[in-house]
Computed example of a mutant assay.
Amino acid sequence: MDLPIDEQSGRRRRGLLIVLSSPSGAGKSTISRMLLESDSTITMSISATTRPIRPGEQDDVDYHFVSDAKFDAMIAAGDFVEWAPVFGHRYGTPKVPVKDALRDGRDILFDIDWQGTQQLHSAMGEDLVRIFLLPPSLAELERRLHQRGTDSGEVIGDRMSRAAGEISHWAEYDYVLVNSETESCLADVRAIVAAERLKRSRQAGLVTFVRDLVGTRGAA
């Protein structure tokens, strides 16, 4: 199958795996949603999870909701490129859709934590772009967690206690952004994606293009 032609370069390229990570409440879900809305060529990776489905969610749309036994079977079968426990449940990225997307030149966005990112990097390193979002301060992070109104005080306290540990992994990422203002942060993420798409290593057929380019001068 031929790879799709990239709109920026006009040449065919491999797909791109884009990871957005952050402590809970630092904005990765909001930035992810806005990036998907602003770029129709990026699709969201659908993870499998053992956590219960929440009101308004759809199976196989928001997540693949599976039992603990099914998740264990998927691990044993090698069906994941990464998986990790998060807040008492397990999340994992199915392998087949990721490999299909890379082959077909499609870009996939991952909303995963540092544990999943490490595993994904080990499995798919050269195709992966890792972006970490930092809050402007821990006080602002806590304010955002309270503002979204989805968690109890106990859960927010747990998320805050984990935040420092999550932030400690910032240096394992290719890009680190401080999410002080959403639109500005989104613009930075889009600039990163645009630059990564143009990397020489991701442009399939570039060697042939240059050879033919030089050959046309010799033929003249």
Rank of each mutant, 00 (worst) to 15 (best):
A164I: 11
G205M: 05
G205D: 01
S9G: 13
T41E: 09
E183L: 08
S122R: 14
R33K: 15
I46R: 03
L17M: 07
G56F: 01
D68L: 12
R11S: 06
S168C: 02
A77N: 13
A187L: 09
D151N: 13
R14S: 04
E126T: 06
D100K: 12
R54E: 15
V210T: 14
A219W: 13
D212E: 15
L145P: 04
L3A: 11
I42D: 01
V129A: 02
T182I: 15
T216Y: 12
R11M: 13
P135V: 12
S122L: 13
G153N: 14
A195R: 12
H121A: 05
L120S: 13
V193D: 09
I5T: 15
H146Q: 13
K28N: 05
A84R: 09
Q8N: 11
I131L: 05
G218V: 12
L35D: 03
E37M: 01
A84V: 11
D79H: 10
T182L: 15
L16N: 05
I192E: 03
S22D: 05
M1F: 04
S29T: 11
D2Q: 12
S152R: 01
D174S: 05
A204I: 10
M44D: 10
A48K: 03
D111H: 06
V178G: 00
H89D: 15
A48Q: 07
